[in-house]
Computed example of a mutant assay.
Amino acid sequence: MRKYWNVDQISGLILLAVAALVIELLFFDGGLLISLAAGLACLYFSKKQREAAAKKALFLIGCFILALTVVNMMTFRLFVLGVVGWVVYRYYQSKKHPQVIAPPFPEHPVPERKVLKRKPLFQNLLFGSQRTPREVYEWNDIHLLLGVGDVVIDLSNTFLPKDAVISIRGFVGNVQILVPYEVEFSIHHTAVFSQVQILDEIGERVINEAIEYETEAYGSATEKVKIFTSMIVGKVEVRRV
């Protein structure tokens, strides 16, 4: 804001607005002057009242009259129109000449590194089922959005990083995750209606709630995977391979 305005400009605009207001009240609409005087009078006499109810009533009436008077002023409408026009103009200028903020260059330039595109293991599908390759594959964290379909993720054919992540959000379908014995895991599942089977220990129905489990050694494990699943209707199964 300081870049586009200075004190002289703001002072000039205030004086211009006051002059326009006086001209409108004196020469164009005398009724507004009467309404303005009535509102100020209500505010003044509200301070003189001793009873709280009368004081509050006069204050509210005065505020209402003043607000209605200001809204009906042509000067106020022109001011609002000018503000909207200025905002639109500044937005248009920012699009034509965007402000560039760049960090200072170091004394020794850092060599440019290329950004490599990686192919995800799964693609978002509206309908259809998917599974990880049956042969050895390179791991990428899974962030999958499904419509209707099943997903099978076999972690025994890949090398997992220290903190692998699986995130699956679906509408209707089943999710099966096969975890090697040496890999610990945690699972956070939310659903409207679903069935959850975790190893051979936990089997329960989820009705409009969220559940969370983790293996006993998850906190200290060096090889582990975080699993997040959410769906409307379906089944989630996690078992060892």
Rank of each mutant, 00 (worst) to 15 (best):
residue 110 V to F: 09
residue 156 S to E: 10
residue 130 Q to D: 04
residue 198 I to C: 06
residue 201 E to D: 13
residue 136 V to A: 15
residue 111 P to G: 06
residue 185 F to K: 02
residue 188 H to T: 12
residue 8 D to F: 14
residue 48 K to T: 11
residue 18 V to T: 07
residue 51 E to D: 13
residue 193 F to R: 12
residue 173 G to S: 07
residue 50 R to C: 00
residue 212 E to T: 06
residue 32 L to I: 08
residue 168 I to Y: 01
residue 214 E to W: 03
residue 63 C to S: 11
residue 28 F to Y: 10
residue 109 P to Q: 06
residue 128 G to H: 02
residue 109 P to T: 08
residue 174 N to M: 12
residue 156 S to T: 15
residue 115 V to P: 04
residue 211 I to K: 08
residue 92 Y to T: 14
residue 204 E to W: 02
residue 77 R to C: 00
residue 186 S to V: 01
residue 133 P to W: 03
residue 83 V to M: 15
residue 56 K to W: 10
residue 33 L to I: 13
residue 195 Q to F: 07
residue 113 R to M: 11
residue 37 A to W: 11
residue 98 P to M: 04
residue 157 N to S: 06
residue 158 T to H: 03
residue 210 A to D: 12
residue 227 I to A: 01
residue 111 P to F: 06
residue 140 N to V: 09
residue 98 P to K: 05
residue 46 S to L: 03
residue 95 K to H: 12
residue 236 V to S: 06
residue 109 P to D: 05
residue 164 A to V: 05
residue 148 V to K: 07
residue 87 V to E: 12
residue 131 R to A: 11
residue 210 A to T: 15
residue 83 V to F: 07
residue 195 Q to Y: 10
residue 81 L to V: 14
residue 186 S to R: 05
residue 9 Q to D: 15
residue 154 D to A: 04
residue 133 P to F: 02
residue 85 G to N: 06
residue 234 G to A: 07
residue 168 I to Q: 00
residue 149 G to C: 10
residue 221 A to N: 06
residue 177 I to K: 03
residue 85 G to C: 09
residue 195 Q to L: 06
residue 13 L to M: 09
residue 167 S to Q: 12
residue 17 A to Y: 10
residue 236 V to Y: 09
residue 40 L to G: 05
residue 163 D to Q: 13
residue 118 R to T: 12
residue 188 H to G: 08
residue 178 L to T: 10
residue 154 D to K: 10
residue 109 P to A: 04
residue 2 R to G: 13
residue 162 K to L: 11
residue 76 F to H: 01
residue 66 L to W: 03
residue 20 A to G: 09
residue 69 T to Q: 06
residue 11 S to G: 04
residue 146 L to N: 15
residue 61 I to S: 03
residue 78 L to Y: 13
residue 23 I to Q: 03
residue 24 E to Y: 12
